[in-house]
Design a protein around this nucleic acid. Sequence first.
DNA 1: TTGCACAATGGCAACGTTAACATTTGGGTA
DNA 2: TACCCAAATGTTAACGTTGCCATTGTGCAA
Lengths: 334, 334
Amino acid sequence: MAAVKKSVSVKDVARLAGVSEQTVSRTVHDSPSVRPETKERVRAAMRELGYRPNFAGRSLRRGKFKTVGVAMFNITGTGNLDRMEGFAAAADKHGYAITLTKVDGHPYTLESASSRMSALPVDGMVVIMNRMPADFGTFEPLPGMQTVLVTMLEHPLCSTVDNDQFDCSRQVVEYLLGRGHKTVHFISCPERSLSGMRREEGWRETLRAHGIEPPQLVRGDWTAQSGYAAGQALADDPTCTAIYASNDAMAYGCIRGLESRGKRVPQDVSVVGVDDSLGDIVPDCRLTTVRFDNKRVGMWAVDKIAGAEGVEPGVEHMLFPGVLVEGDTVRDVR
Amino acid sequence: MAAVKKSVSVKDVARLAGVSEQTVSRTVHDSPSVRPETKERVRAAMRELGYRPNFAGRSLRRGKFKTVGVAMFNITGTGNLDRMEGFAAAADKHGYAITLTKVDGHPYTLESASSRMSALPVDGMVVIMNRMPADFGTFEPLPGMQTVLVTMLEHPLCSTVDNDQFDCSRQVVEYLLGRGHKTVHFISCPERSLSGMRREEGWRETLRAHGIEPPQLVRGDWTAQSGYAAGQALADDPTCTAIYASNDAMAYGCIRGLESRGKRVPQDVSVVGVDDSLGDIVPDCRLTTVRFDNKRVGMWAVDKIAGAEGVEPGVEHMLFPGVLVEGDTVRDVR
DNA sequence: TTGCACAATGGCAACGTTAACATTTGGGTA
DNA sequence: TACCCAAATGTTAACGTTGCCATTGTGCAA
């Protein structure tokens, strides 16, 4: 078996089928102006030679790649898998592909993501932001490269999309107040997290909007251990009847911490988390939490690029609210 | 501000800089045979026009895309994020990009993954297998498209790489036997999981190799709930002093199930999991488990493709062993 | 028979880049 | 001065595809 020296082109197929290159091209695109029997002959030739259309030639001719680039600073991050599911689903829908790139976070700038993408075969790009890039205010997307940022911050030149973390806290706080709690304690996250800070703002402002001065928050670090410590600390606070934790791991840790101090959940204290990430990992706890649809966020981002064939697309900002999922960790105290 | 009509090409840059197209190309590639001052002039022109090299033209000329395609049937799967981290890292190292595609699993065949990739700008492809594809035995990779499968099964025509699930069970069983346990009970997973079945085989065969007839296994479904039930069931079995669960969620569930029946871990029963996925989610449990390096698996797969510039690469099969991480859930009974 | 419409196919050029080869320039040596 | 060498730059062609326009063939109405 001789090695395949070079890829077969329309020219080779045309020669074998005894037609012109153009007819081969038309057959590939299933044009109605090729006789069925000719088509069949061409297709037979394609099969025999193992012809596959060359992407480079095609996009050079078309000036389009039918591909969306995704730039990530951190690939391993909560919700990234679901977002990718969304990217892939939306891309699929439009006949697009996804090109994934890890961007070095030093410096953490949109510019570095953008220049990384600029030489790749993409028609537009999505950047997943976890922190605040140094050049957020000054960044300009590459001309002709539609850019969508996954973040809650609004950008003047790029469309943005994310989960609504502020509204998430509003939902949780109002849910707890609605069930009779006089205030809501909060276990926060490290201060450099953008989404975490919005959650904190939402908690604080919603309480104020109800005329309640927010109590001292307990700072956590996303881990169950920190939630455990927070739970132990809050167990001794008689005013604490409801706790809202920035994520489910801390919420679960908090529950165990409370238990270790003789407090029962939800009988003595109610606990709510965020992320709906405990699912199948913890056996005995149906945590009340907020579920985000990261897949939808991902789909929106890619839709924005792949859905805008040719038309000059405007800058748009989209926030998707989470859904509060009731578990067994909140008690009605009315 | 006039809209950018068409992309700027070397021709435009050459005209503005007053040099030939070739000199522009040479400047882009930082060839030493261009005078520094000429280079600077060309670069200035590039900046002014916002020139970005066109990927299509480039790969058409080169016959290479410098891109590896990744086909997944399920994007949301344990370890996929780490694998992608590995794909991206290895691609980066070689100056490659990653193109991600979700393949419809109906039918679940390598052929469908392959044909999906065939029209994309990729030099090789990686397929992540979760189940047994219908055409595993008969599949032939596309000519000229180096194909790597992420699976434990060896394929005659494609390189393969994965974690060594068999060895993982061997390690766990021998570790527990080494600490004095007379046998090891097993909580399995659904039967359609390839890696899960290898874990089961490893458990069974290692026990037999030590002259121990494997006890009746308890079938789980990956969830902590099923582990909880298994723990309760095994709590009444006086021969059960050590339990090996197919994943950490079931192991944790099992611990809680045992506790609910008055058994303490590790004092009464030792428990070992697999995956090291509990990390920051559970506060009060340092589970003994096996950690896999999925990033390394991903890197190996992409290295195999991107690292083989031009040379005809042979078919190779690689299994990476996991590392047993000692926690606080195993007791020495010697 | 001629003319005409329409279906089917072919020829050509261009997309942007770069390898291979060709040409010019400047400086040094015999 | 004539010559040669190397450095610097230019010219040409080709990669594979497809839009545009030209050409050929076929059937039908005038």
